[in-house]
Each structure stands twice: as C-alpha cells, then as structure tokens.
Amino acid sequence: MTFKAIINGKTLKGETTTEAVDAATAEKVFKQYFNDNGLDGEWTYDDATKTFTVTE
C-alpha cells in the first residue's frame, strides 16, 4: 500500500510517499525520515486517505 506524509515544518514543507504493508510500518519509516531531517511536531493520521500529517 502507498502511504503519504504531508510535512508542515518550519524549515521543510512538502509531501513524500512510502510503500508499506501497514500504517504502523509506514509511520516508522516517516518518523525516521523526519528525525533524520530534524523535524519534530504534532502527528495526525487519516486512515481513509492513508495520509500522515506532521505540523511543526
């Protein structure tokens, strides 16, 4: 399945996608990506659209 992340950061904005077997796996991938890029913020997840949003 394809999962999307919308990034609303102070220094980084945009979208990225990942292929994962479930939402928990996708969340781990996205959180690692955000940690690697120095992002920290509020997380939400919309199961209907398979979209994570992080707002810094």
Rank of each mutant, 00 (worst) to 15 (best):
M1N: 09
M1L: 12
M1P: 06
F3W: 04
F3D: 02
F3K: 02
F3S: 01
K4H: 11
K4A: 04
K4T: 13
K4S: 05
A5W: 10
A5Y: 07
A5R: 00
I6L: 07
I6H: 04
I7N: 02
I7Y: 15
I7D: 01
I7Q: 02
I7H: 11
N8A: 11
N8F: 13
N8K: 12
G9I: 14
G9M: 15
G9T: 15
G9H: 10
K10L: 14
K10I: 13
T11Y: 13
T11R: 08
T11G: 11
T11I: 11
L12I: 11
L12W: 15
K13S: 11
G14N: 07
G14M: 15
G14E: 08
G14T: 13
E15W: 14
E15G: 05
E15M: 13
E15S: 09
T16G: 04
T16F: 15
T16K: 12
T16V: 15
T16M: 15
T16H: 14
T17Q: 09
T17A: 07
T17R: 06
T17M: 09
T18G: 02
T18I: 15
T18Y: 08
T18Q: 04
E19G: 03
A20L: 02
A20I: 03
A20H: 02
V21E: 09
V21S: 11
V21A: 10
D22A: 01
D22V: 01
D22M: 01
A23V: 07
A23L: 05
A23E: 05
A24G: 06
A24H: 08
A24I: 09
A24W: 10
T25S: 12
T25R: 06
T25I: 06
T25Q: 12
T25F: 05
T25N: 06
T25Y: 06
A26V: 01
A26F: 01
E27C: 14
K28T: 07
K28A: 12
V29Y: 15
V29C: 13
V29R: 07
F30H: 00
F30S: 00
K31H: 05
K31L: 07
Q32F: 05
Q32T: 09
Q32L: 08
Y33Q: 05
Y33C: 11
F34R: 02
F34H: 01
F34T: 10
F34I: 11
F34Q: 02
F34W: 08
N35W: 14
N35P: 03
N35H: 14
N35G: 11
N35I: 13
N35Y: 14
D36P: 04
D36A: 13
D36S: 09
N37W: 15
N37T: 10
G38N: 10
G38T: 04
G38A: 07
G38M: 07
L39T: 05
L39S: 04
D40T: 13
D40Y: 15
D40M: 13
D40R: 12
G41Q: 05
E42P: 05
E42N: 08
W43R: 00
W43H: 01
W43K: 01
T44G: 05
T44C: 09
Y45I: 01
Y45A: 00
D46S: 04
D46G: 00
D46K: 02
D46P: 01
D47N: 07
D47W: 07
D47P: 13
D47S: 09
D47L: 06
A48P: 05
A48Y: 08
T49D: 03
K50A: 05
K50T: 02
K50M: 09
K50E: 01
K50R: 14
T51K: 01
T51A: 03
T51I: 04
T51V: 05
T51G: 00
T51C: 02
F52I: 00
F52W: 06
F52N: 00
F52L: 00
F52V: 01
F52Y: 04
T53I: 09
T53H: 09
V54A: 03
V54T: 02
T55N: 08
T55E: 07
E56T: 11
E56L: 15
E56F: 13
E56M: 13
E56A: 10
